[in-house]
Design a protein around this nucleic acid. Structure first.
Lengths: 209, 209
DNA sequence: TGCTTTATGTATCTTTTGATACCGTTTTTT
DNA sequence: AAAAAACGGTATCAAAAGATACATAAAGCA
């Protein structure tokens, strides 16, 4: 890929041209397939990723179940990788591509260096932490205070908005995973929604009405 | 208070002596009473606090209920204040002292300046964000997957450990607030624990056995 | 085509949690 | 001291959610 092309793909928030230039110099561009694992638990991180295209699912694995932390989307970096790298700890989570993705990676030592040189880099880091915190706080409140039917509806409308379509491609089982409940509960609730005319159900997808 | 006294009370993680000196120069020491409000929702922050002694309860207020985010304890700063100040946003939460406290405060503009000068300051910020995130993640998992009786027991043993005593001073009502449930549920569960010989109940406190 | 896997619908039963109400006791306030 | 507020125990009822089991349909594949 041409340097100018990469430059054009870097998030616009990096305002200092010297920073953008350093990214080009030290970073490199990689592509991964769907279901490729970028990071696994216990691994030391010698690179920090910024997702250019695609999506990475970040989660933790406990005994039997999986805890979804967040998705890293275009222009974003992985908060968990970032802080693990910063303190030279191993990763406590997994990162797996949900689709074919393009990732820009560069050595983790630069995280520290750039903090002392570029304020747009600092702003990016703090923004990353704060928005992940707010996101998790939203999930927490939802789990703590909202009944499941409301959470299902929120999930669907959020995704519809984000993906700009009324048709959400997800199975009942996977929706149950996302919300930390069981398939039967989801099927029951969705059927109720359909009877109320709120959605139309298809095999493998749900359309909001 | 003498400068040397204040210096001694600043968290040890600030390793650069120039940073410690700047803190002295630009910051000041304030004391607050129990139940004093330091920060309220909608307020712009012109200062960032570091708690030297005491404890600040940080929470959000929604319609009817209150969401406890975290406690800021000795040596810690408030993540919510920090990021609000950083982006010149108003605060989305409240900060209220739970006991008489001593707070070191300094102008928020220094947060940015120090990032570009002192790496121990950067490490402190990132540590602050990451540990709050992990803390919230723990609460999330607990709410999502643990039955209430287990959460009650975890709460008690955590506090016992943190305060280094088996006697936890809290009413059933306040314990219910902390865990987002109701008084009756807590009383029921605690009585069960007492019958199983796990705790002994007193008015206003619970002793672990 | 026939077999297997995945997706979904639904009934039944149990458990967990919450809501409400009423009680007596202790502590604090007036 | 009297009144009010806070604290805790407990019974009853209802609702929410999970567990289990079984059934049908669609999709993928050998």
């Amino acid at each position: 890929m041409e340097e100018s092309e990469i430059l054009a793909k870097l998030p616009l928030v990096f305002t200092e041209s010297a920073l953008r230039q350093e990214m080009l110099t030290h970073g490199k561009f990689i592509t991964v397939n769907k279901d490729d694992t970028l990071v696994r638990e216990g691994q030391y991180l010698d690179f920090l990723p910024i997702v250019i295209k695609g999506e990475i699912r970040v989660f933790q694995q406990k005994e039997d179940r999986e805890i979804l932390l967040y998705y890293v989307r275009e222009g974003q970096t992985c908060m968990m990788s970032l802080s693990a790298a910063y303190f030279n700890h191993t990763s406590t989570s997994y990162g797996v591509a949900t689709k074919p993705s393009e990732i820009f990676v560069f050595p983790t030592r630069l995280v520290n260096e750039w903090q002392l040189k570029y304020s747009s880099w600092n702003a990016y880091l703090i923004q990353t932490f704060r928005s992940r915190y707010d996101e998790l706080l939203g999930s927490f409140e939802s789990v703590a205070f909202d009944p499941i039917d409301k959470r299902v509806l929120s999930y669907l409308t959020d995704r519809a908005k984000k993906e700009n379509t009324a048709q959400i491609a997800i199975s009942h089982q996977n929706l149950a995973y996302e919300l930390g409940t069981t398939r039967v509960v989801i099927s029951r609730i969705l059927k109720g929604f359909e009877q109320q005319g709120k959605v139309k159900l298809f095999r493998g997808s749900i359309r909001l009405k």
